[in-house]
Amino acid sequence: MHPDPARDAGTGHLAAWQREVGLRLAAVKAGRRQDGPFEASLTGVPLGYVRLLSLEADPVRLSRTPGLVESAPARAVAVVLQEHGHAALTQDGRSTVLEPGQAAVVDLRRPFSLDERERFRLRVLRVPDHALDVPAHSVRGVTGRALSPRDGVPALLVPLLARLAVTAGRIPPSVADALGGNTTDLLATLVHDASDPDDDDHAGAARDRLVRSVLRHIDRHLGDPDLGPESIAAAHRISVRYLHRLFEDEAVTVSRLVQRRRVEECAKELARRGSVSATVSAVSSRWGFHSPAHFSRAFKALYGHPPGRWRGAAPATTGTVRP
């Protein structure tokens, strides 16, 4: 794996360097803090779905304005490590000074400013928000703060980021993928540890609302044979991994839930006195089953006997379901 150097980011090319920052990190406005030539560089190395960037430049103020957030969305969160120089970071109503060796979380989905007051070197870990799987309000609780590399999760994440910045170009792709996942997990843990109890209560309520929304979506689309974790997650703009996490406390997987609801609706229809004219195959197809054999197995697993026998013996209710 080799670093991906910035194009046209040499002496005097502030506009070119700004474009590269926009392409690799997020669209920003770069304002010079001194007259004369502007010297800067930018390199990037992928770690799976994570991107590790190294920025070095003369004093400059980087700002992501509300207009840029709207016109050029960036669905990602970053950890910035200030290696050289001092910087003032502002986001979400909080400001902090980053000294050499300190890091901070920056939510690229919202406005921020980073004022580098002298020539600097900055390492940036860019993580897509769908991979991070952390609610935006939880990320908001940790932005605009300097993270001490001596305590808690930052004591693990900051040295790892510094080391990766030096060695990432020599790491095999398979190892880089694993490291990308590890750093993402560390960042998610950092955000979780930094959230306060009120945030946890808010997150619990938001989770419950999302679960209810998913359940309604499943019921509305049971007849779609393509209904599954991927389509459900896409409809709610969350990752499949986060969808599965939502249902960890529900004692059933998402796929099993979809199948159970389909079987239940088939059982209701077969139990109706007026459904005798509809074949078992037609009923199962109407509720999203790809094959009668699959439906028969699923039905027997839930109710204890095949659907044909159920229609001949069942009353107008669905009866007792196996636990």
Rank of each mutant, 00 (worst) to 15 (best):
S138H: 10
V175F: 13
D201V: 13
R145V: 09
A162N: 10
D193N: 12
A155M: 06
H130F: 13
S174C: 09
L122W: 09
T143G: 04
L190E: 02
T183E: 03
G152D: 13
V127N: 00
L160A: 12
R170D: 15
P154R: 07
R123A: 15
V191E: 04
A155G: 09
P173E: 15
H192V: 06
D115R: 12
A168C: 08
S148Y: 04
D200Y: 12
H130T: 14
V127T: 00
D201W: 10
E118N: 14
P172M: 07
L132F: 02
A155E: 01
A188S: 08
D199A: 10
D199R: 12
P172E: 10
V166N: 02
L186C: 05
A168H: 01
R121L: 11
S138C: 10
P173A: 15
D133K: 00
D199T: 13
D193K: 12
A194V: 09
R145D: 02
P172T: 07
V175D: 12
V142H: 01
V142L: 04
H192F: 10
V191M: 00
A188C: 09
V191P: 01
L147Y: 03
E116Y: 10
D177H: 08
P154A: 04
P154G: 09
N182Q: 14
L190M: 03
R119P: 11
L190W: 01
R170S: 15
L125S: 11
A176D: 05
D200Q: 14
P172F: 08
S195V: 12
G144W: 04
L161K: 06
D199G: 10
P173W: 11
D133N: 11
D196Q: 13
T189D: 12
A155W: 00
G181N: 09
A136E: 13
L122G: 06
D198R: 15
L164M: 12
H192D: 11
L190C: 02
H137P: 06
L147H: 02
R126H: 03
L132E: 08
L186S: 05
